[in-house]
C-alpha cells in the first residue's frame, strides 16, 4: 500500500465501556504516532458502539471510525475481517494494533493474510525504529523462555498487544477529535458462522483478573481436595483462586482459573504460588505481580527464580501454618 499513514487501534468494547486493553493500546498508539509524526485513529466495531467514540478520543485518539451494525453484535470472523479489510483499504494505516484477546488473536492473522502483509501476535513492547521508521515488535516466544523482535517491510504492520503490557493515558474529557461513521456493507450470506449460545463459567468470588491477591495451585496440589485449602487462604485475603495448566487439565479446578500464556494474565499485588514448579508459560501469566510468594518442596524449582519470598517444604504442612497466622494478622 503506497503512502500508508497513521496508527489505527481496534478498540474493543465490553459492558458499554472501552476495554482496558483498548485504552492501553491508545496510550501506546499515541507514542507510536508521535514517533512517526502521524495521526492516531481508533475503530469501534459492534452494535450500539457509537456512544464510545468520545471515550476513545479522551484516551488519545485523533479520529474515531465507527462501524455500528446489528450484524456485528457478536464477534464473527468473516464479518469482522471483512469490515477491517474495508477500513484498512480506505484509510491505509501504516500500523494496526489489536488486543491479544479472543477477538484480536482470531482477527489479526486473517486480516494480515487478506491484506498481504504480516502480523506479530502477543506483543509486549512496540517501538518505532529511529532510522527505518518501521515498527519493532517484541513478543515472548518459546513459552516465555525467550523474546523475539520482528519487523515487516509491508504495510499495514499489524500487531496484537498483550494486556497490561502498555500504559493508558489519563482520560481527558476535554480532548477533541473527529468521529467518522462507516457503513458495514456486509453480505449476510458471506458470514459462515452463527453464534448459537454464550455460556458463562464464572468462578464464585472475586474475578481472577481483577483480584489484588491470587492464590494459585499447580501439579503439586495433587487433587481437587487440596484446592479447598487454597480457597481458605484466598478467602482470608479477599483474593481469587488461580491454577497452572496441569492443575486445570487434571480437572481439579475450572479451566477459567488457568493463569499463564494461554490462560489469564494477572498482575495482582500478591501472587501466592503453591506447588507450582514455575514453567515459563505459567510465569508469563503472573510475573506482573508486585510480590510473588512461593511454596514448593523443591528448592531448585524455577518458581524461586521469580519469587520474592518463599518457603521450602511440603505445602500441606507449611501452608496451613501460614494461613492460620495470616488469619490472626488480618483479623487482629
Amino acid at each position: 500500500m503506497p503512502d500508508s499513514k497513521g496508527v489505527l487501534v481496534h478498540a474493543e468494547i465490553a459492558d458499554g465501556k472501552l476495554c482496558a486493553i483498548a485504552t492501553e493500546m491508545l496510550g501506546c498508539g499515541r507514542k507510536l504516532a508521535s514517533a512517526l509524526g502521524q495521526e492516531l485513529a481508533a475503530v469501534l466495531i459492534g452494535s450500539g458502539v457509537s456512544n464510545n467514540a468520545q471515550e476513545a478520543i479522551a484516551f488519545g485518539a485523533d479520529k474515531v471510525y465507527v462501524i455500528d451494525d446489528p450484524t456485528l453484535a457478536d464477534y464473527r470472523t468473516d464479518a469482522y475481517v471483512s469490515v477491517m479489510e474495508k477500513l484498512a483499504k480506505q484509510v491505509t494505516p501504516q500500523v494496526i494494533l489489536l488486543g491479544q484477546t479472543s477477538t484480536g488473536r482470531d482477527l489479526a492473522p486473517r486480516l494480515a493474510f487478506r491484506l498481504n502483509t504480516a502480523a506479530t501476535l502477543d506483543c509486549i513492547a512496540l517501538d518505532i525504529d529511529p532510522s527505518s521508521k518501521r515498527l519493532l515488535q517484541t513478543k515472548p516466544v518459546y513459552g516465555g523462555n525467550a523474546q523475539a523482535v520482528f519487523t515487516c517491510d509491508t504495510d499495514p504492520q499489524i500487531a496484537t498487544v498483550r494486556s497490561k503490557a502498555m500504559s493508558a493515558l489519563p482520560q481527558d474529557a476535554s480532548r477533541k477529535g473527529e468521529v467518522i461513521t462507516i457503513a458495514a456493507g456486509l453480505d449476510a450470506s458471506a458470514i459462515r458462522t452463527t453464534v448459537l449460545n454464550k455460556v458463562k463459567e464464572q468462578v464464585a468470588g472475586i474475578k481472577l483478573e481483577d483480584a489484588s491477591v491470587v492464590v494459585s495451585g499447580g501439579r503439586g496440589i495433587g487433587g481437587a481436595e487440596g484446592f479447598k485449602q487454597l480457597a481458605e487462604l484466598a478467602q482470608a485475603l479477599k483474593g481469587a483462586i488461580g491454577a497452572s495448566r496441569p492443575a486445570c487439565d487434571s480437572g481439579w479446578v475450572s479451566d477459567a482459573c488457568q493463569v499463564g500464556l494461554t490462560g489469564k494474565l494477572v498482575a495482582p499485588d500478591i501472587y501466592i504460588a503453591v506447588g507450582i514448579s514455575g514453567s515459563s508459560q505459567h510465569l508469563a501469566g503472573c510475573t506482573g505481580a508486585k510480590t510473588i510468594i512461593a511454596f514448593n518442596k523443591d528448592p531448585d524449582a524455577n518458581i524461586f527464580k521469580v519469587a520474592h519470598y518463599g518457603v521450602v517444604g511440603d505445602w500441606k504442612v507449611t501452608l496451613p501454618a501460614f494461613t492460620k497466622k495470616v488469619k490472626e494478622l488480618v483479623s487482629g
Binding site: 519493532l136 524461586f304 518457603v311 517444604g313
Partner: peptide, 27 residues
C-alpha cells in the same frame, strides 16, 4: 516477518527463603 533479534530475558533471582525450626514455623 523478519526476525531482528532473539534473546533471553534476564530474570533476577533475589528470593528470600524463610526458614524455621519446623515447617510449620517457617510458614
Amino acid at each position: 516477518a523478519k526476525l531482528v533479534k532473539l534473546f533471553q530475558p534476564v530474570r533476577e533471582g533475589k528470593v528470600e527463603i524463610i526458614t524455621g525450626e519446623t515447617p510449620e514455623e517457617a510458614g
